[in-house]
Design a protein around this nucleic acid. Structure first.
Lengths: 170, 170
DNA sequence: TATTGTTATACTCTATAACTATA
DNA sequence: TATAGTTATAGAGTATAACAATA
């Protein structure tokens, strides 16, 4: 108890003071290194357990939300992968039978990619595992990490009762 | 004015409730997509303005902190790059004259890498620019993003005075 | 002419495993 | 035998630019 409602000083950040700038910078740096760790592990598991890459997972997750599929240009925007590279990315997935490309009648320049049934099933499994992995990884570092992260960057003011190492349950 | 000390509910997270788990998950997902955007832009600028890559920048930042250099094994750990790949990474930097490899007398199996003067100067410039870029990127999205991010994931309880869109200065 | 994709190129990163030299 | 690096290999991602087909 006493852990709730830890005070956060957002004012420095929002008002754009020097101190606020420093805090922002540290927040992003912290986020970058933390997410590097996480995404490295996610990539490893995607590869080992599903033979997939993170960009492929990203792409499939976009298609999963769009049963009718997406034009490659739109896919490119959403995944932040250049047009030229979307082709190869989709191609590899098509070879595995996870994605199919079709040209609609209206405009023959257009290519629409969508998940096959196999792809849809595969992605559902991956997404499920993905969520579980995140939970696992959080369990390893939790409960200290999030609060520590916020404290570390000076966003959360550490209070006497906010000392997490040790008897969190007491 | 009312923006300070916004209340944060860490209790759900720390106590490990269902609700806390959900919040964590959303936090990581948000972080992953946010940092993807940022690191993509950072990578682009490092390449265009300095001809460097993010892994190279990471490696140099480790060496910058250690004037005496680091053994490759230690570099590998700190950068999370496998031993086999550290060799090539360091090699490319050595070709550019930014890093030098030396074998100490005590143990001839060991290789120590350290920044050259040129490398040190180059890194200082890069780090400076890097910090500026982060500030720039934050300026684009700021002040809403950080607070919004925290609010969005349910970490910060949005209050009446915490409505950021619009007249933040009033 | 503009748009939509594709192709071509070149480089870096990443992972894995076999290998060498030294201790 | 164990340790520190290196080499070898293969595959994917990334960026850029030239290109083809269609509108």
């Amino acid at each position: 108890m006493g852990l709730a409602n830890v005070k956060v000083d957002l004012e420095a950040i929002i008002s754009g003071t020097q101190e606020g700038k420093k805090q922002e910078l540290r927040l992003w740096l912290r986020m970058l290194s933390t997410t590097k760790l996480i995404s490295q592990e996610i990539r490893r598991r995607l590869r080992n357990e599903f033979g997939a890459t993170l960009p492929q997972f990203d792409l499939m997750s976009q298609l999963f939300r769009e049963p009718d599929g997406l034009r490659l240009g739109e896919l490119s925007k959403r995944t932040m992968v250049t047009n030229g590279n979307i082709t190869g990315l989709v191609e590899r997935l098509e070879i595995d039978g996870l994605v199919i490309r079709e040209t609609p009648d209206g405009d023959r320049r257009v290519t629409v990619a969508r998940l096959t049934d196999k792809g849809s099933t595969a992605f559902a499994k991956m997404a499920d595992a993905h969520e579980g992995w995140l939970r696992d990884m959080m369990a390893d570092v939790e409960p200290a990490v999030i609060a520590d992260m916020l404290t570390d960057i000076g966003l959360v003011k550490r209070s006497a009762s906010n000392h997490l190492s040790g008897d969190a349950g007491a």
